[in-house]
Structure formats: structure tokens, C-alpha cells
Write a protein that binds this DNA or RNA. Structure first.
Lengths: 231, 231
DNA sequence: GTCTATACCGTGATAGAC
DNA sequence: GTCTATCACGGTATAGAC
């Protein structure tokens, strides 16, 4: 790697031009979506020549995928680790619903704490992809579903007797709430007249964990009711 | 209106070319987003000449807004009516949290029952807009927030003593889950191995209402706890 | 008032020369 | 790694036909 490929970001760390392109693309794609961004905009924002994007990533589609993949593994490894730890910490009867949801969400807090603003852009990009019927099933399905199924398994153990599909629906609701949070539209800020700050992920997770735990427990109660009445 | 402006849809009803353009644009925008659709694609799908779009709607942006506005009022009027009815039906102490959420969601069921497939496309479009940091605050804020604040008010009455911001957060979660449902990505279908059908809105609302009611009630309980411990 | 044919001109992704 | 050419496509404008 030659010196000319390196630049300094604001924390003083040297980063390659390839990374600069990824950073610029990440931010732009997260705001305007795939079709709303041109490679020229990316090259301008990254401060590199247009042709360098072609050199490093080839087609636009591949650049988009590279942006998505760069942080996917880091994110999911952190969540998997959190789940495994909460399983270890729990007794033989396994972790509670609440602690499983906590393991799913808490690792995301570093996004806000990180000095790298790219993580916030990345979350917005995940929101864009997750809501897209074009990209969602391909990219999220391929790279996030294995981890999600791991969490679903844990929830099933924590709620024995509950029908599988009910747990999947609960996850769907959780995923939707998280996605809208990631999207960072600022709508809740305005709607609430400034009472809620959509940028304060920690405040959100603090509320999401009990809120969704209550939802899941309601499923469990309902299912138990049905089992009883069916007996 | 001349005969030449009319065509027949599959239910045999005559619809104007202007409506055909709106229908085509609605479907395409809902799948590919604003930037992912060209006016030429719209004209082709609608079966009209390109210049006709310019004649009826002017700029692309204005077409997009026309598509969004066409059904917004119908949708929100139905929900407002449902809320008012549930308030009338309740005693002087006002409606329950559960019945308020029901009034928010149930009117959406006609979307699935309607013969007009455009309603499903419209919902996906709302999902796209609600998750977009570019369009969300402008269009959803302007045309949906007044209704939403009406529901928030009802929830506040149903949960006296709960801090306003907690209710806003609860709404944020509800909105996210609903948005992901609207988006119709089919991801939950695949994730669940076919157990869940994302097209079955009725099944979803049946589960959302108790799930989110439980979440809100948990907020209420928490708040009461804090009040007690603070006393 | 409704619709069509056609042209404009900037911009886009991409390929190939250097 | 970089520069430049290519060539299709995009939104929009306009003149005129029914």
C-alpha cells in the first residue's frame, strides 16, 4: 500500500482510499437508497477520481454489497457473543425472554458510542435494505437470518409450549420497531415536539427491552390460556 | 370527459387515463422507490404516452405527491371514524388502551379485503416514505401526524399519570412494526419457513393488538412503580 | 380540454486506452 | 491507478393534432 492511498480521518488514523469510498457510499446510500445515488456523487464525497471506484469495486451493485458486508459480520458476531454469554450466565433452565431481547439489542449500543459516525449510517442502510422488497430478502436474508434463527431458538426454549409462528410474529414486530429506529428519519422527534430524540439509541433500547418482553409474555400467557381451555 | 380517456379495469369499471397513471406509478414507486422509477416505465405500465404524464402531473415530484395524497385522506378518515366510535362506545372514563390500538389498526383491514390491489401497493409506498429520511418527515409528518396526535391524546387519557414521552415511544414501536408489515418484503415468510404469511394483514392485526397493548400496559405499570417508589 | 410526436440536453454507468 | 470516450437513458419542453 503506497503512501498516496492513505489519508487521515479526523481522529488522525490513516485510512485507505478504498475505505474512503466505502464510507462515502455508505452515507449516501443510507440516505438516498441505491438508485438515489450516483457513482459521481460517491467519488466527489470520497475525494477520489470516479474511475477508482470502478477499479476497486467494479459495478455499482458490487460497491453496494461491499458496503453492506463490511460491517455485517462485526455486528452479528457481537450479538452472537452476547447471546452465548447470557446463555452461559443463566441456569440450566436457560435465559429469560427479557435477557434474550437484551442480548439482541444491547450490543447495538456501541453504534452510538463509537467515534466512527459510519456506524450510524450503516444502521440507516440496514433499515433501507430491510424495508426494501428488492434488496431485503436477498441481503438481509442471507446474512442476518442465521443469527436471527439462533435468537428464535433461544426464545422458543424460554417460552415452551408457545407455537413457533407466534414467536416469529413477535420477532417481526421487534424487527420493525428496530428498523424504524435505525432509519433515523427524525419523525418521532418532530411528532413529540422534541420530547423524544431518535438519535438516542440507548434511551430507545432501555424502553424496547421491557416493552417487547411484555409483548412476548402476553403471547405466552395467551398460549397457556388456550392450552388450558383446550385440555 | 371523452370516451378516449377511459379504459376498463378487470372489474369492468371504467377508469380514466389519469387514474391509470396513478395506479402504475403507485405500484412502481412502492417497489423501487422514487429514484428507482423512470417516467418512461410509468408510461409503459400505464399504457399511455410519456407526454401525458407531463400533461396531467407536471414534474416527477408532483406525480409522486399526487400518488401519496390520493388515498391518504380516505385512510385517515376511516381511522378517525373508528376512534370516535370507540370513544362513543366507551363509558365516561374513556376507551381502553386495547380498543384505541384496535381503532388504529382495524380500519386497515379493508386494504386486504378490497378488490383494488392498489391499496396494497399504497401501503408499501407508505412504508417506503415512512422509512425515508428524505420524504418521511415532509409527507408523513404533514398528512398523518394530526391523526396520530389524536390517537396519542386518547392513549394519554387511557393511561393517566404516564409521562407523555413514554407514550410517544410506544407509538414509535407500533409504527415501526406496522411499517415493516406494510413493506411486504416477504422476509418473515422465508425466515419462518412459510409459517407466517406477510400478506395476511388480518392475522397480523389480531396479534399486534394484544402484543402492543401488553407493551403499553407495561409502561403504565412501570410508571406506577416509579410513582410508588418515589412516594 | 385531452393527447401525441419528437427533440433537447444533461447525466449516468461502464469500457478501454494509457 | 488514471483519463477520456462512449452511448444509452433521464426529465423536461414544445409544437401541434383531435
Amino acid at each position: 500500500m503506497s503512501m498516496s492511498e492513505l489519508a487521515k480521518n479526523r481522529t488522525g488514523k490513516k485510512i485507505s482510499r478504498k475505505e474512503l469510498i466505502l464510507d462515502a457510499a455508505e452515507e449516501l446510500f443510507s440516505i438516498h437508497g441505491y438508485d438515489g445515488v450516483t457513482l459521481r456523487q460517491v467519488s466527489k464525497k470520497a475525494g477520489v477520481k470516479l474511475a477508482l471506484i470502478d477499479y476497486h469495486f467494479g459495478r455499482k451493485r458490487d460497491l453496494f454489497e461491499s458496503v453492506f458486508l463490511r460491517r455485517a459480520k462485526i455486528l452479528n458476531d457481537a450479538r452472537l457473543k452476547a447471546l452465548e454469554e447470557c446463555e452461559r450466565a443463566a441456569g440450566p433452565e436457560g435465559p429469560s425472554v427479557e435477557s434474550i431481547i437484551e442480548a439482541f439489542l444491547r450490543p447495538l449500543e456501541f453504534v452510538q458510542e463509537s467515534e466512527d459516525p459510519g456506524w450510524k449510517h450503516y444502521c440507516a442502510l440496514v433499515a433501507y435494505i430491510n424495508n426494501s422488497s428488492v434488496w431485503g430478502n436477498v441481503m438481509i436474508g442471507k446474512h442476518f437470518n442465521p443469527l436471527v434463527l439462533r435468537f428464535i431458538e433461544a426464545l422458543k426454549k424460554a417460552m415452551p409450549g408457545v407455537r413457533e409462528e407466534e414467536i416469529f410474529w413477535g420477532y417481526h414486530f421487534l424487527s420493525g420497531a428496530l428498523t424504524l429506529t435505525f432509519a433515523q428519519t427524525g419523525r418521532i422527534d418532530e411528532l413529540s415536539g422534541g420530547l423524544c430524540k431518535s438519535s438516542d439509541f440507548q434511551a430507545i433500547y432501555n424502553r424496547m427491552i421491557p416493552f417487547f418482553s411484555a409483548g412476548f409474555k402476553d403471547i405466552e400467557k395467551d398460549n397457556a390460556d388456550k392450552t388450558l381451555s383446550g385440555a
